[in-house]
Design a protein around this nucleic acid. Structure first.
Length: 300
DNA sequence: AACTTGAAAAGCGCGACCAC
DNA sequence: GTGGTCGCGCTTTTCAAGTT
């Protein structure tokens, strides 16, 4: 039998931690201080923790309370969204900055088009793109980022994802690179490779495909972003594998680089948008996700 | 000054009972 | 069977006084 939960206590605890005092929380809840003190007592019993303890004439939260505080605002936000009536959403009147995290080339290739679409539909809103990091899950949880666009991977179970499109690997080499005359699985292993990975990964689907053929490439350099990788590729014999959609982003820019098709049986890479469940029912966020999804559907 | 606690009052849920 | 009333008991609140 699960323990009966009094959600009023959750709300009261959130106010207590926000206000840092029984009196302050009591005022917010339109109660007397003694009544609030009683509620604090019930919270203490429920969580089996003092929650707030005296420090001189003030109350300070316990470590348990601080840990709870991080989750409380999410829970209350979700509960509020659950209860709130669903109003018709009009992006024309929306004043909001959406923070989207994506890789550097992706931003360069797509931010313009997406911004144009957004400005037509929601002229009072704006986009803020920030670079990828290896802590995307945390950024979504903390509300620092509204949306992450990137490769599908093992997201935290709570994070929601939606597939946007599939991409396959190609590669870039410098103009005049000797491999251009003969691109075979074997010649791919004759030159050093650059791996672009913000998590420092050196192995991927290319290594798997080569291994199936009894071959192994030399990943001599791992970099966190595509810009620096391309700069180095221009001036060396490095081979820079990268997803096709990233290449589309730089094809309009004339760089001394040549695209080569990888003669390997490579599986597609799926690009997804990912968000925190507390934004799942937010009408503005729903609209943003749909707009992005439609944007990529039109490009296919 | 702010929080806690004891006592009393008020509010509320629930079962029992009755009238229709 | 349905709806209204009553009484009991539990929970929550307020007031007043004590404690930190």
């Amino acid at each position: 039998m699960p323990q009966k939960i009094d959600f009023n206590l959750i709300y009261a605890l959130n106010l207590l931690l926000e206000e840092g005092s029984v009196g302050g929380a009591a005022e917010k809840m339109n109660l007397s201080a003694p009544a609030m003190s009683r509620i604090l007592g019930r919270i203490r019993h429920q969580f089996d923790d003092p929650i707030m303890v005296r420090a001189g004439k003030n109350l300070v939260p316990t470590p348990r309370a601080l840990a709870l505080k991080r989750q409380l605002s999410d829970i209350i936000e979700q509960a509020t969204a659950l209860i709130a009536p669903t109003e018709s959403f009009d992006p024309q009147g929306l004043e909001r900055t959406f923070t989207i995290r994506a890789n550097d080339i992706f931003i360069g290739a797509l931010a313009g088009g997406l911004l144009e679409t957004l400005r037509e539909m929601a002229p009072l809103s704006s986009l803020k793109f920030i670079a990828e990091s290896d802590t995307d899950d945390d950024a979504l949880r903390m509300g620092k980022v509204d949306l992450v666009i990137g490769s599908s991977r093992n997201w935290h179970p709570e994070i929601k994802t939606q597939s946007l499109f599939a991409s396959t690997f190609q590669a870039l080499v410098r103009r005049g690179h000797p491999i251009i005359d003969q691109v075979t699985p074997e010649t791919l292993t004759h030159y050093p490779h650059i791996s672009v990975s913000r998590r420092g990964r050196t192995q991927g689907p290319i290594d798997d495909a080569l291994r199936d053929l009894g071959l192994q490439r030399n990943v001599a350099l791992t970099l966190p972003g595509f810009h620096s990788a391309m700069m180095l590729t221009m001036k060396s014999d490095f081979i820079l594998p990268l997803p096709r959609h990233v290449l589309q982003g730089v094809s309009s820019v004339s760089l001394p680089l040549v695209e080569i098709e990888l003669p390997l049986a490579l599986e597609s890479v799926f690009i997804v948008q990912a968000w925190h469940p507390r934004l799942d029912r937010d009408p503005a966020h729903q609209w943003l996700r749909q707009t992005i999804k439609d944007f990529f559907l039109r490009r296919e």
